[in-house]
Nucleic acid binder design. Structure first.
Lengths: 139, 139
DNA sequence: ATTTTTGCAAAACCTTTGCATCCCA
DNA sequence: TGGGATGCAAAGGTTTTGCAAAAAT
């Protein structure tokens, strides 16, 4: 599931109605930039038409997350959305420049096991965020 | 640095003024419960006196974080504060019951190394949050 | 006496909600 | 046509801010 048509078809099958707004919001989500806040999606959709309301953005993004089509990550105050098609990864958020590096999630496999064993905790490591300082910002 | 007097002394040395409000806020932070939202701190301080404003709570907590005395963690929407004296640990937040398990941070040592090596990223692993499902909630 | 800190209230911020209208199926 | 989706505006919750008064040094 990775391009707009596929997602729309999935939604159709699940009895959701396909509206121009939803198409544009999904397009925005899939548009390369994959760390989009609701506000970012709103801005991107507005370049195509001003006839979309911010409430619709929020409602649609929520729906997409509920349907397992998008993920929702809290970057310490800012909430970002991404298509799950990207697969699991870690957001490395730089405290200085706010740049977000996507790290491969395989680095978490060992941690996952350990948390299961020691705490019986099934961590959702699909889209987590870690804060720190990136190479460029280590003054 | 772990009890109220030590922290107050530190603040005094750094030219901060010691007010009853600050004493009570620090007391609250150190009071066993170590996952306190600003609202929690406010509630706890109010059991002692009603003469403290919520704005003061926010301002003082911010100051304590800036001074490296408290940590600030975003639990997906809710922000919690803790004294750094607790040492680094992971917050395992259950998606179902919202219970927070404190996990030992040593499980992150390997991850830390890997992020340094592969991404040049110096992760701040002092107080991170992971979401998932705890033992009790695995229906 | 000076400067920080506080309280108060208002504002800012992001997100949600109620309801009438619209429009997809 | 019927019910879900939208737009609008208002409300919601949390956090921040401006300013005068109060308190700490």
């Amino acid at each position: 599931m990775n391009d707009t048509e596929n997602i729309l078809e999935t939604l159709r099958q699940r009895q959701f109605r396909i509206t121009p707004q939803r198409e544009m919001i999904i397009d925005a989500l899939l548009s390369g930039e994959h760390h989009l806040s609701a506000e970012d999606v709103y801005a991107q959709v507005q370049t195509r038409t001003s006839a979309v309301n911010i409430a619709t953005i929020y409602r649609t993004l929520d729906m997409l997350v509920e349907q397992g089509i998008a993920s929702r990550t809290d970057l310490g105050g800012q909430v970002i959305y991404a298509p799950v098609g990207h697969g699991p990864h870690i957001h490395l958020v730089c405290r200085h420049c706010s740049f977000v590096i996507d790290a491969d999630a395989t680095v978490l496999a060992a941690l996952d096991e350990q948390l299961q064993r020691d705490y019986g905790f099934a961590a959702d490591l699909g889209h987590i965020s870690l804060f720190g300082v990136c190479t460029g910002c280590k003054e």
